[in-house]
Each structure stands twice: as C-alpha cells, then as structure tokens.
Design a protein around this nucleic acid. Structure first.
Lengths: 249, 249
DNA sequence: GCTCTTTGTGTCATTTTAACACTTTCAAAT
DNA sequence: ATTTGAAAGTGTTAAAATGACACAAAGAGC
C-alpha cells in the first residue's frame, strides 16, 4: 500500500531522518526489549527496529510503519522520547558496512527520532521481515551493546520510563487483562530497579482506585492462589489523562 | 567563522532538519518567551528563533548557533524538548511565503528539533540579526499564535517546564544571583500557573537547603525590605544531578 | 498430613501536607 | 511627626502519607 505511493516519485524516503523504536515487554519476571538482528562477520549485532521516514509521513506514523515492517508489531501506541543526531553516530565499521547494504545514501547525515512503548509480550509475537534477519525479546539488563547510538537511546528510554511510572499509570500496558497484584508489584520493581515493600505497594496501588478485584482467583498454582484484578477503565483513563502527583516510591 | 567552512561545499545546510529554541525569561512578574519577528503583509508575525542545521553539527550545537545568529544570545544551556514534524506544518500562506524568502529549498519536508532554556532576562539583551527583523521578550500568556507549529512547541515547552520544576531545582536559572524568596515564590507561581501558599512555599524551599540567606537586605523599597538569598552551590548542584522526589505543590 | 511456596493482611511512629491571620518594616505623603 | 500603603515575615494544628516491620492462610505435590 505504501509501495504504490512510493512509485509516485514525488514521495521518497528522506535520507536524513529516521525513526527508532524501543519496545518494552514484561515476562512477569523482568523487562525485555525488542531488538532486530543483523548478521555481521563479527557475529550477531543487535539493533533497535528503525529506518528512514517518507517525506509525506507523520513521524508517529513512520515509527508505526517501520516497527510493523521489521517486526510485525502493529497498533501500538508509541510515545516520542526525543531526537538523537550525533554527526558521528556511525562510528563502528560494522555499522557503516551495514548501512552500505541497506541504504541508498549510506553516508548521509541522519538524525533519528526515538519512540518507546510498553506492550504485553504475550500479545505480540515478533516476526522479522524486510532487512531484519530476526526480531527477538532480550532482557534489558543483558544488553551491553547495540548498533549506532541505539544503546544511548535505550538508556534514555529506560530513565524516561522510570520517571513516567511515578506520574502516570503506565505499566499497565505491560500486563494481561487479568493480573495479580504480585505481578504488578514485580513490574514496578523491574522498572524502578529496586525492591518495594509489598504491603506499602499494595496500599498505594489500591488507593489510586484503578484496579478492581475480580471474583476469580488463580488456579493450578502450587501455593495460595492469588486474587485476580482488572483495571477500572474509567479511573484508569482519567488518571492517564491527568497524571498524578506524588506517587513517590 | 561558520561561513568559511560552508564554502567547503562538503558541508551545507541540511534542508530537512531544523532546530527551534524556546527561551524563557522571568521579569519578576511573569514568564516571557523570546521570539523573533518577521514582517508580513498582514502585520507582525512572531516565530521562535530557529533554522536549518549543518550536516556536521551536533543538534545541540546547532541550536546554540541558530539562537546566537538570530538573537545574539550565547552560552546558554539548552535542553531538548523533542522532535516536531507534521508534514503539513506549513499550512499558513504567510509561512510559505516567508520560507520562499529565506530557504534554498522552501518546499522541503522539515522536521524540527525543539530546545528550551531558562535565563535571567537582565543578563541577555536580545539583538536581532540574520533574517530576524527583531528579537523580543513577550509574556507567554499573551501569545495566541506563532509561525509554523511553533505554538505547539511552546505549549509543549510550558508543560515540560511544569513537570521539571517539581523534580529539579531549575527555575533558579531565571533569577539573578541575589534574590528574595518572594521573587522565587512568584516565579514558581508563574510556571505552575496557580497560587501557592506563601508560608508553605517558604518552608518547603528552605528544607531543600539550596538557598542561603545573606546578611544583606533589599533597600530603597517602599515597604519592609526583604532578606536577600543566594544559592548554596554545592547543594544546588547535588540536587540538579540527582533530582528530588516529592516536591509536589 | 506434611512440606513448600507464595498470598495477603495491620499497626504505629514519623513526616508531610494544607489551611489559615496578624505583626513588622520601610518609604512616601501629609 | 504622624499617618498610610505595601509587601515581608512568621507558627500552629489537624489530616494524610510514608516507611518499617512479621505472621497466618491457602493450595499443590509428595
């Protein structure tokens, strides 16, 4: 669908502006991030899904398109992190040669606009396509290096996430419809990267009035089954819009 | 100095990426923002200082350069707000004709990276040059319209500022070396756009340990002279680096 | 029925918050 | 010299939020 328009010659990839996506997922144990793989001589090299934008595209649209093209993930609310544009961002030889293989103007100065999002891992099975050889979830804490300036971008995304979780009830995007407070608890601990007192956490969450306890309980677990919860959508939306002060763990 | 390099043909303005600067100043009464003027048939039209970047420039450098070229303001710490890039951002006819007069490729798709900063108004007398006909401080609340998407950018900058003042002791950039707590109080009220209780405000500020009372007092004022304060630089830096939770007015 | 594992719950001392009004000090005017 | 106007400066209290802390309950598997 994009391709037809592209033939129209007026609308081409803009060689100077790209988008990159930092997609966080949660596996009930730790934070993961979605990366794509390029094969190189020196072995595997991970990168964030990203590519150039088209001249007639909104940045947000471009981010969604690129993400879908490379990983198959669609219909995701992406929030902008900011622009990154070190003129020397292509410092590694491996980056340079990779660009040679995928870009019409591999030497062009590129500034990239980074986006991030939080998704339920179970809902999205990444499927690599286009120039991505594979697309995988990798635990955030295991990542030591990424292509280009993607490692910087990831760090920025992580710290943005830390700030945001104190102000808005995000993080709920990362959990399935029905969830336990323990899962939510662990999620907050993963994002903030520090332990939180269980009782105080529960008290605080409940006071926000965004979770409703269901009749249902966990079953099949070899221990006391946990109460399941859902979001109270009304309050949830309200808080998402207004934000909240003082959620200071 | 930039010009010599420019003749070198290899390094040119990048037609697709610009920077815009939102510079806030405080006149002890209200927030102001620095805008430049372009003359148009329909009268005055304000814009944020901004222009295209060079291909070899860091974005942050570009922002500083452009700001200096258009308004004379130099040595200002600029913080990025984000990228703006609606492909239809040039919707007004007046914007289009202005671009015709200043850009080599007036129709090019542009994405702009916005920056903001806080300065002491008294320290910086804007001096228009380049394509800016004038450069002036305008009260933020009086601005109803700006060129391109600059009004959006301003709104984003304002709300970013609101968030930030709760987390970091910025705002001090906006005051002279010696200041009164009333001035600081009014500044916080201007930024947060709501009244704050005087006594509670003072208590809270003092607990942060970033202001030191001087021996000196105001003089020549037709009312009880106010104690003057300075920043305790050590604590100030510490807090600027670490941020602080729970400064929730 | 014993063991293992995770859930779920309450109190208390301390700190933080928000609301609220009157006296002090100076310059200017009379 | 006295008055007036205008902003500075100061403390208490009741309510809410925080952080620290430990043990019983429920189910699965053996």
């Amino acid at each position: 669908m994009r391709k037809e328009i592209k033939k129209n010659a007026a609308i081409e990839l803009n060689p100077n502006v790209s988008v990159d996506c930092v997609i966080f997922g949660f596996d009930f144990d730790k934070l993961n991030v979605l990366v794509i793989n390029r094969e190189s001589v020196d072995g595997v090299q991970w990168a964030l899904p990203g590519n150039l934008i088209y001249d007639d595209e909104h940045l947000d649209q471009a981010a969604n398109r690129v993400l879908a093209e490379l990983t198959g993930l669609q219909h995701i609310y992406l929030e902008q992190i900011g622009a990154f544009g070190d003129p020397n961002r292509i410092s590694k030889e491996s980056d340079r040669s990779w660009l040679q293989s995928i870009r019409a103007q591999p030497e062009a100065r590129v500034i990239t606009v980074a986006y991030f999002s939080l998704v339920k891992m179970e809902d999205y099975q990444p499927q690599a396509s286009s120039f991505a050889k594979s697309a995988e979830w990798i635990p955030v804490n295991e990542i030591r290096e990424l292509a280009f300036d993607h490692f910087d971008i990831l760090q920025t995304a992580k710290s943005r996430l830390k700030q945001m979780i104190k102000i808005r009830p995000i993080g709920f995007n990362l959990l399935p419809e029905k969830f336990t407070l323990s899962q939510l608890h662990k999620l907050y601990e993963s994002i903030l990267d520090k332990p939180l007192d269980k009782r105080n956490f529960r008290r605080k969450i409940q006071k926000l009035n965004i979770v409703m306890s269901l009749e249902e309980k966990q079953s099949g677990v070899p221990h006391k089954p946990s109460q399941l919860f859902m979001f109270d959508k009304e309050h949830y939306l309200l808080l998402t819009q207004n934000g909240f002060d003082n959620f200071g763990f």
